[in-house]
C-alpha cells in the first residue's frame, strides 16, 4: 500500500514541481524509466509468487537503471545510440510482457 502511494506521490510531484533535469542525464532518462518499470513488474511478480525479497528488488532496480543507461551511453559513444536504445527497449518490453503474463495468471487465474 505504501509502495503504491510512493508511486502516486512520485508522479504528482514530478508533474507539479517540474524539476529541471540536467542535460547530461536527459537522454538516459526514458531508457532508465523503462528499465525501472521492468524491475517493478519483476518485483510484483515475485511478490505474487511469494518470493519477494526487498534487497533483491533494490539491487535489481538500481542495476537495471544503471546498466540500461550505460548501454545507451556506450551506444551514443559508438554512434549506434538510436539502434541500441531501440534494442534495449525491445528486450525490456519482452520481459515486461512475460512478467505481466505471470502476474495475470496469478490475479485472474487465466
Amino acid at each position: 500500500m505504501i509502495a503504491v502511494l510512493g508511486l502516486v506521490v512520485g508522479v504528482v510531484v514530478g508533474l507539479l514541481v517540474r524539476p529541471e533535469v540536467p542535460a547530461m542525464v536527459e537522454p538516459y532518462l526514458p531508457i532508465a524509466v523503462v528499465a525501472a518499470l521492468d524491475a517493478v513488474f519483476g518485483g510484483l511478480r515475485a511478490m505474487l509468487d511469494g518470493i519477494f525479497v526487498d534487497k533483491v528488488f533494490v539491487v535489481s532496480f538500481l542495476s537495471n537503471v544503471v546498466v540500461a543507461a550505460l548501454i545507451v551511453f556506450l551506444g551514443d559513444k559508438l554512434g549506434v545510440g538510436a539502434q541500441l536504445s531501440t534494442g534495449v527497449v525491445v528486450v525490456l518490453g519482452i520481459r515486461i510482457f512475460s512478467n505481466a503474463a505471470a502476474i495475470r495468471r496469478h490475479v485472474f487465474r487465466a
Binding site: A3, G10, V13, L15, V58
Partner: peptide
C-alpha cells in the same frame, strides 16, 4: 524506489 520511478515517468 517507486517514488523515483514515478518522478522519472512524470518528468519524461
Amino acid at each position: 524506489l517507486l517514488f523515483v520511478l514515478g518522478l522519472g515517468l512524470a518528468i519524461q
